Amino acid sequence: MKVKINSWRGVATWRWIANDDNCGICRMAFDASCPDCKVPGDDCPLVWGKCSHCFHIHCIMKWLNSQQTSLLCPMCRQEWKFKG
């Protein structure tokens, strides 16, 4: 018996590997996008601080730009430094 495949559709999923499920600033899931983006993925990457907290890049940049004095992590209030 031979089987002929007429069509085939591949399905794939992806997930960010983060220490939490949601952004601490916008509260959107990391698997989704931040409120500024329409499509999750490479255009809405995650960034980590040395304090190990993780945020959408657009969310943390808005947060840092809104700070008048020192640049602090919105979760733990430690000085914000990007993990490198």
Rank of each mutant, 00 (worst) to 15 (best):
M1R: 06
K2D: 12
V3D: 00
V3C: 03
V3A: 03
K4D: 05
K4A: 04
I5Y: 01
N6G: 07
N6S: 07
N6Y: 02
N6K: 09
S7T: 08
W8G: 08
R9G: 00
R9A: 10
G10V: 07
G10F: 08
V11T: 14
V11P: 00
A12P: 03
T13P: 03
T13N: 14
T13K: 14
W14S: 15
R15D: 15
R15H: 15
D20F: 00
D21N: 12
D21V: 10
D21I: 09
D21K: 12
N22D: 09
N22T: 10
G24W: 05
G24A: 10
C26L: 08
C26G: 09
C26F: 02
C26M: 06
R27K: 11
M28T: 08
A29I: 00
A29Q: 12
F30H: 10
D31C: 12
A32R: 12
C34Q: 08
C34K: 08
C34S: 15
C34Y: 00
C34D: 09
P35A: 00
P35Y: 02
D36N: 11
D36T: 12
C37S: 15
C37Y: 07
K38C: 10
V39E: 14
P40S: 13
P40K: 11
G41K: 14
G41I: 14
D42K: 15
D42C: 13
D42F: 12
D42S: 15
D42N: 13
D42G: 13
D43S: 15
D43C: 12
P45C: 13
L46R: 13
L46A: 07
L46K: 11
V47T: 15
V47S: 10
V47Y: 05
V47L: 13
V47M: 11
W48C: 13
G49Y: 02
G49R: 04
K50C: 01
K50E: 01
K50L: 01
K50V: 03
S52V: 01
S52T: 02
H53C: 02
H53P: 05
H53A: 03
H53D: 00
C54Y: 01
F55Q: 01
H56Y: 04
H58L: 08
H58G: 05
H58Q: 11
C59Q: 02
C59I: 04
I60S: 05
I60Q: 06
M61Y: 03
M61P: 00
K62V: 01
K62N: 08
K62F: 01
K62Y: 00
W63H: 08
W63A: 05
N65G: 01
N65K: 09
S66L: 03
S66D: 04
S66Q: 07
Q67F: 01
Q67Y: 02
Q68I: 09
T69N: 08
C73G: 04
P74G: 04
P74L: 06
M75Q: 13
M75K: 10
C76Q: 07
C76K: 11
C76V: 06
C76S: 07
Q78G: 05
Q78E: 09
Q78A: 09
E79H: 06
E79C: 07
E79F: 04
K81N: 06
K81W: 04
F82L: 14
F82M: 13
K83I: 03
G84S: 13
